[in-house]
Design a protein around this nucleic acid. Structure first.
Lengths: 130, 130
DNA sequence: ATCCTTTTACGAATTTTTTCGTAAATTAAG
DNA sequence: CTTAATTTACGAAAAAATTCGTAAAAGGAT
């Protein structure tokens, strides 16, 4: 039975999770480099390390300590996490109206024909269900 | 010229903004009552007051001090704020893929026929543009 | 006028999140 | 082997966000 942690990862934690989701199993050094590539403001190595150690305690990541450089990977699923974050975000920023948010997102985004087709397909599937 | 504040409102601030966007011009007491109605854990009156005073300094809200009970209202637009928050959220939680997020939102949400029709109309409009 | 309640202002305590300095351990280089 | 570089562990400082206690001011009730 998994203990559900209703508190969401902090911004910093989410940044690291993104890297882990994208790259799988990596060292602290790798994550720190990735962060510093992304941001102008240099982030200290021990800062990243500490954050990842905290995330380990919280169960957000797991690690392999066989070799000296510990190898970390995500311990929560990306899509599940996105689902939770999304619902909280819709509540906090769009007063619970997912549709309002979808409309805003669609309106602001330059969607490709393929993407629009996918959405249309999804909508048709939903219409059949009802 | 409006100074663009790229830092997003905190969770607490956003909660209060929601109430202001929904109800317009209201007192601190009103906001505090609304918050306490929403949450099990009682929030002290002065806590809400202080937060709103800070928001005033930041320019997130404005107030009318003609009468003793000051009347606050939002000083930033809901849709503009939503737009900013949405783009930041897509970046931080969906690695920038708005479409992935839209799909997730559509999939998880029980949409009414009317809502689906609106989206279809929006998609058609977007297809014409391209 | 006096008392009671509400509201504001202010400062500070608390909690959460982020950041980093330092030391010890391990590995790599010469 | 000795030195230098890398990594972990740990604690604590710094920064950001939240919470509240207290006092003074303003109104309302009797």
């Amino acid at each position: 039975m998994s203990k559900k942690n209703s508190s969401k990862p902090t911004d910093g934690e989410l940044e690291i999770l993104q890297i882990l989701w994208e790259h799988g199993s990596v060292s602290v050094r790798f994550v720190n480099d990735a962060l510093n590539e992304k941001y102008p403001k240099e982030i200290g190595y021990t800062t990243t390390l500490k954050l990842m150690q905290i995330m380990l305690e919280k169960g957000l990541v797991k690690r392999n300590t066989d070799s000296r450089t510990h190898i970390y990977s995500a311990n929560i699923e990306e899509s599940e996490t996105q689902e939770k974050l999304l619902s909280q975000f819709v509540d906090s920023a769009f007063r619970g109206s997912a549709m309002k948010m979808v409309m805003q997102a669609l309106g602001n985004h330059e969607a490709s024909k393929k993407e629009l087709d996918e959405i249309k397909a999804l909508i048709e599937k939903m219409e059949k269900k009802s």
